[in-house]
Amino acid sequence: MPVKLGKTVATLEGLCAVEEAEPLLAWLREHPRGKVNLARLAHPHTAVLQVLMALRPPVSAPPRDPALAAWLLPALGAGRAEGG
């Protein structure tokens, strides 16, 4: 499962497909202080990306792929500071 929804952290790994958007959104709505771990994320579907951008959860770990981090972190705006 590319999206693992924990108690405080949602971990996104590999390719996150369009079906992941809904559960991730639901999880973020239920966990307003929840964080996301993007370390092993390869590619989020646009719908998943939208969820992240709309709800702006803090990033606990940025993507290890520098090309992905280069545009994803600025897109997530505020999430960047905390994710460091």
Partner: peptide
């Protein structure tokens, strides 16, 4: 060389109002 993503309308204040399957990027 460079990729930028941004919403083309403000995100809704209320997360409940957000529809993840309508592409607004």
């Amino acid at each position: 060389v460079w990729l930028g993503v941004e919403p083309r309308e403000p995100w809704p204040e209320d997360p409940e109002a957000f529809d993840p399957y309508r592409c607004v990027l």
